[in-house]
Amino acid sequence: MKASSKLSTLVDDTPLPPIHAATDPQAIARGEHIFKNICYDCHVQDSSNHAAGGTMPDLPKPFGNITSANLTGHPTAGIKDVPDEKIARAVRFGVARDGRRLVVMPPFKMSDEDLSAVIGFIRSNDPLFTPDERPQPTPQTTPLGKFALGMGLAPVPNWPASGIQAPPKGPTVEYGSYLANDVYVCSECHTPGHDGDKARGPDAFKGGFKFFDTPQGGIYSTNITFHEKALGAYTLPEFGRALRDGITRDGFALRAPMIRVRGLDDVDAEALYKYLQSVPKSDATLPDDAAPRVKAAPQSEKPEVLFVQLGCALCHGEGAKYRAMLKQSRGKSSEEVAKWIRNPEKILPGTQMPTYEQLLDEPQAVSLASWVQQQAANIP
């Protein structure tokens, strides 16, 4: 997270990057991959599947009401008439169209080419950007939020407005560093605290950042260094599966807000693997109040228990932002819904749903699907 020491401070002297939306189909596809893996979770906050922004429940509630921007093609509520250069400035420097620092938008030092690709996808006709008239209010921070977001966070970064290039794509530490720090910004979530420079500090990648509380305990980011207490035992295939499908080497489902990097190719996976092997190892473990990580239970386990154990409730439980998506199960057979639960990536490539095939057998999935359909019938 980034912000200025005074959240209301204008930073109009931040340069506008001379970067425009890509139009090449291959570049737009690259932009789609980046947006859906990095931007989607903040800018899609309900079941409309529109990047219309909204309140961000993953941030600590004592901070106040923190909202993300409407990125749809609406002319006033969205960004239809916002110049490409201002969108580029928001991504690269965390500066809003009116010249103020964005409260929680981290600056991305991604290459000019990747930034152009992201803007190209935002300007595309993808349904995510269907004009949506809902304006998003200015974030309302509490005194605690202003202190946490204002005291320790870095100023506008001093990297150039343009001319940033990525290292050559390859299974190298250098390219993995670019992906981890400048594209996927893994260290932002996997480093404790709110200091704007934390990603470059000694605690980077050791985990322990608290997202929110659940009845089972707090949801924290995990240690992703290659210490024996963290990722030390992971093979490259296991590491790739965790990123793509959301399943750890030990058979646990990775819970929200951890992303699924669907479409991650083998070169990128190996580059990230080698880079994380190169960072200082940490023996940090999750705090005592962390919610337990639970594998799928035996077939006799009740579906409502599986719904919680597998992390489904974090996205689809009562009051969760994707609760209404359960309505899509109405009118379908339980077997059809079970196929979606076990292998959603085969039905909707790029989905952030974990792949539960290795955690749930078909009878378990059908039982869970039937229970979900019962819940869906009661959703207005």
Score class of each variant (00 low, 15 high):
residue 3 A to E: 08
residue 6 K to P: 12
residue 15 P to W: 07
residue 18 P to Y: 06
residue 20 H to Q: 14
residue 21 A to D: 08
residue 30 R to C: 04
residue 32 E to G: 01
residue 38 I to R: 03
residue 41 D to W: 04
residue 41 D to Y: 15
residue 41 D to C: 04
residue 42 C to N: 13
residue 43 H to S: 12
residue 43 H to Q: 00
residue 48 S to Q: 08
residue 50 H to N: 06
residue 51 A to P: 10
residue 57 P to E: 01
residue 60 P to V: 02
residue 61 K to D: 09
residue 63 F to M: 15
residue 64 G to N: 05
residue 65 N to E: 11
residue 66 I to R: 00
residue 66 I to H: 00
residue 66 I to E: 01
residue 66 I to C: 00
residue 67 T to I: 10
residue 72 T to M: 03
residue 79 I to H: 12
residue 86 K to G: 13
residue 88 A to M: 06
residue 100 R to P: 01
residue 102 L to H: 06
residue 104 V to T: 12
residue 104 V to C: 00
residue 110 M to L: 07
residue 113 E to P: 01
residue 113 E to I: 09
residue 115 L to C: 12
residue 122 I to A: 01
residue 124 S to D: 02
residue 127 P to R: 00
residue 138 T to Q: 12
residue 138 T to P: 06
residue 142 T to S: 13
residue 144 L to T: 14
residue 144 L to Y: 06
residue 144 L to H: 09
residue 153 L to E: 14
residue 155 P to K: 10
residue 157 P to N: 11
residue 168 P to W: 09
residue 168 P to G: 12
residue 169 K to Q: 09
residue 170 G to A: 09
residue 171 P to R: 01
residue 171 P to T: 10
residue 173 V to M: 10
residue 179 L to I: 07
residue 179 L to H: 04
residue 184 Y to H: 04
residue 189 C to N: 03
residue 193 G to D: 04
residue 194 H to E: 15
residue 201 G to A: 02
residue 204 A to W: 01
residue 205 F to Y: 06
residue 206 K to V: 11
residue 207 G to T: 03
residue 207 G to C: 05
residue 208 G to M: 15
residue 215 P to N: 03
residue 217 G to S: 05
residue 217 G to Q: 06
residue 217 G to E: 01
residue 224 I to N: 07
residue 228 E to S: 13
residue 230 A to W: 00
residue 233 A to E: 14
residue 234 Y to R: 06
residue 236 L to E: 11
residue 236 L to N: 05
residue 242 A to T: 07
residue 253 A to E: 05
residue 254 L to W: 12
residue 257 P to A: 05
residue 263 G to K: 11
residue 278 S to H: 12
residue 281 K to R: 14
residue 287 P to Q: 14
residue 293 R to K: 15
residue 294 V to M: 15
residue 297 A to H: 05
residue 299 Q to P: 12
residue 302 K to A: 13
residue 305 V to C: 09
residue 306 L to Q: 01
residue 308 V to C: 09
residue 309 Q to K: 09
residue 313 A to V: 14
residue 318 E to R: 12
residue 325 M to K: 14
residue 325 M to P: 02
residue 330 R to L: 13
residue 331 G to F: 09
residue 335 E to D: 15
residue 341 I to M: 03
residue 344 P to D: 04
residue 346 K to Q: 09
residue 347 I to W: 02
residue 348 L to N: 05
residue 348 L to T: 15
residue 348 L to Q: 07
residue 349 P to K: 13
residue 351 T to L: 02
residue 352 Q to K: 14
residue 356 Y to R: 10
residue 358 Q to R: 08
residue 362 E to I: 09
residue 364 Q to D: 06
residue 366 V to M: 00
residue 367 S to K: 14
residue 368 L to S: 03
residue 372 V to K: 10
residue 375 Q to G: 05
residue 379 I to Y: 04
